[in-house]
Simulated assay, not measured.
Amino acid sequence: MRERKEMVKHSKRYKEIQKLLEPNKSYTLAEAVETLKKGPSAKFDESVEVALKVGVDPKKSDQQVRSTVFLPHGTGKTIRVVVLAKGDKAKEALDAGADEAGDKELIEKIKGGWTDFDAVIATPDMMREVGKLGKVLGPRGLMPAPKAGTVTTDVKKAVEDLKKGKIEFKVDKSGVINNFVGKLSFSRENLVENIESLLSAISKSKPATSKGQFMQSLFISSTMGAGFKVDLNSMALG
């Protein structure tokens, strides 16, 4: 029997993206962003994302990397915020712009599978009940935490911060920090400043027990685009 070799067909857009890539090249951050923006556009405003490999052992509790940072030019996304709080605190959250706020009924709604939100804030007195939502919120990285500023009595400030562009970063099980940093429609300068702000905050969050090189590799990409490797040595991070 004659062997049949199946040809893999790629779209015109895919081929155009591949033309931008230079094998084994590491770009400066500005070059990577500029090249990313030159790619063929999708039918929507793509998100720009970073993937940073860090030198920690995520299995060790003293080598966790988790904190927050304000992106100077925002995220370009409409962040849907849920606040789990009682009485006056729930009203305070709604007045500050929360999309949903409440206690038992809202918890039951989430427990039933409703996940149409991007961030969850909770007051300390709600955490026992919030713990029951671990199976729903945990896999999505949405469990409220003091380090992320999402367990607080100042729900007004927490809601406003998230709406203005405050994001959380956290290392995953493979030692990688993934975050979106804006939209492809942003200017090159604004994207670069957002990424630099994120990397600077991550650098300052290096655990004391982390040995060797902390930031090991960085790639930036868009939702439908290619990934570009950034030369970390070309960056000065404070």
Rank of each mutant, 00 (worst) to 15 (best):
R128M: 10
V54I: 15
H73M: 04
E3Q: 11
V181Y: 07
K77M: 07
L52T: 10
A85G: 04
I107Q: 12
F117S: 07
G76P: 06
W114I: 12
H73N: 10
K170L: 11
A119W: 03
N190P: 00
A119Y: 01
G138L: 04
V33K: 09
D99Y: 05
V120F: 05
K147V: 11
K104V: 09
S210R: 08
S26R: 10
A201M: 00
V48I: 13
E160I: 03
D154R: 13
K147Y: 03
E6Y: 14
F180W: 04
N194A: 00
D57W: 00
P58G: 14
D231K: 05
P40G: 08
Y14P: 00
D231F: 00
F44T: 02
H73D: 05
A122Y: 06
I195V: 11
W114A: 11
T152Y: 09
K60G: 00
R2P: 12
S217Y: 02
M215G: 08
K12R: 11
S185E: 03
K59V: 14
V54C: 06
F228C: 06
G113H: 12
S26A: 12
K157D: 09
K147C: 00
K19A: 15
M1L: 05
V54E: 02
L36R: 01
A30D: 15
E22C: 00
P139Q: 13
K53S: 11
K135Q: 12
E129H: 06
E22H: 08
K59Y: 10
V83I: 06
Q18P: 00
G102D: 09
I110Y: 09
G182Q: 03
F117E: 00
M215R: 02
E108V: 02
K25G: 02
D99N: 13
G134T: 05
E16C: 00
D95S: 11
M215Q: 04
K164G: 02
F180H: 07
K38Q: 15
K163G: 04
G141Y: 04
V171K: 07
R80Y: 07
F228A: 10
E46N: 05
V56E: 07
K173V: 00
R4Q: 03
T152E: 07
A32G: 03
A93D: 03
F70P: 04
G138P: 01
V33H: 03
I110T: 08
